[in-house]
Simulated assay, not measured.
Amino acid sequence: MTAISYGDRRLGVLVPSGNSVAETELRAMLPPDVTMLTTRLELRGSSAAELLAMLIQLEHAAALLGHAEPEVIAFHCTAVSTFAPHLAGEIRDRISAATGRRAIATADAILAGLATLGARRVLLVTPYVEAVHQREVAFLGAHGVRVTGGSCLGVDSNTEMAAIRPETIVAQVQAAASGVVADACFISCTAIRSAGLIAALEATLGIPVITSNQVLVWHALQVLGIHRHVNGFGRLLSSTTIANGPSRRT
């Protein structure tokens, strides 16, 4: 008989339909006793109309996840959940109303992770088109986090984002970080291959690095009451207690 770990805890995750990266990264970082269950919502491009249309079937998709009785349901799309300062709260409320279960969004995880790291000044690196990047800058600013530097690649679709080579992301971060004072680096987007870059970039930059997928895992574990070290994916996941150190000029 082959032993299979099914996990005693269940996390439901709603992901964009065109995203081929998030589930792989999330599973790599979640401890084996947490089972991840996913449902997709339509999203492939980055126009404002496409991003907001992802929410049309939100209740239906969340209800399908609810049938599997997850403890928490996460809406996992950075660009949509940071579209406006109030939107993540509305998304949470809609999911909870449809399922009777606790809900979180990527935007919640980002803000909670940065707060835990004591990061008020952030280097923001994204693959997005300019409009999406700037909305994220505005979202962070509305919550007291100042973007002191960064860049975007102008990529529109989830398929193109998944095709970005990890070394391209590293080069983008290093170029954007030159001369910038920041408390943390945020590599945004659930659809890019960034989880494996975190530890090395932290060593190079001298500041904590978070990514959309990594910070969602961290936040979900906190909400689930699972306070456990997960090594290999940066300071946030490797320690539940973060000592606030001085900012670094990267």
Rank of each mutant, 00 (worst) to 15 (best):
L52Q: 08
L65N: 12
S47Y: 00
R102Q: 15
E69S: 12
A48S: 02
L41P: 05
L65R: 10
E50A: 10
L51Y: 01
L41Y: 10
A79M: 07
I91Q: 07
E59Q: 13
N19T: 07
R27K: 13
L52H: 08
L41W: 03
M54G: 14
M29G: 11
L37T: 11
L43R: 06
S46R: 00
L26P: 11
P85F: 00
P85A: 03
S96D: 04
S46A: 13
A79F: 04
A22G: 00
L26I: 15
M29T: 11
L43K: 07
E50I: 00
H76I: 01
V80M: 09
R27L: 13
P70Y: 06
T38V: 15
T82Y: 03
L41D: 04
M29C: 11
R92I: 02
V21N: 05
A103W: 02
A98N: 06
A103V: 06
L58S: 09
Q57F: 02
E42Y: 13
R101G: 08
S81H: 01
V80K: 04
V80A: 08
L65I: 12
L51Q: 14
L51P: 01
L65T: 09
L26N: 13
A49I: 06
L55V: 13
H67L: 14
L41G: 03
E23T: 10
F75E: 01
P85E: 05
L30F: 15
I91E: 09
R102Y: 14
H60L: 11
A103G: 06
R40G: 08
E25R: 12
A84V: 09
V72T: 09
A84I: 04
N19K: 01
S47V: 01
P70E: 11
P85L: 00
D93Y: 04
T35I: 05
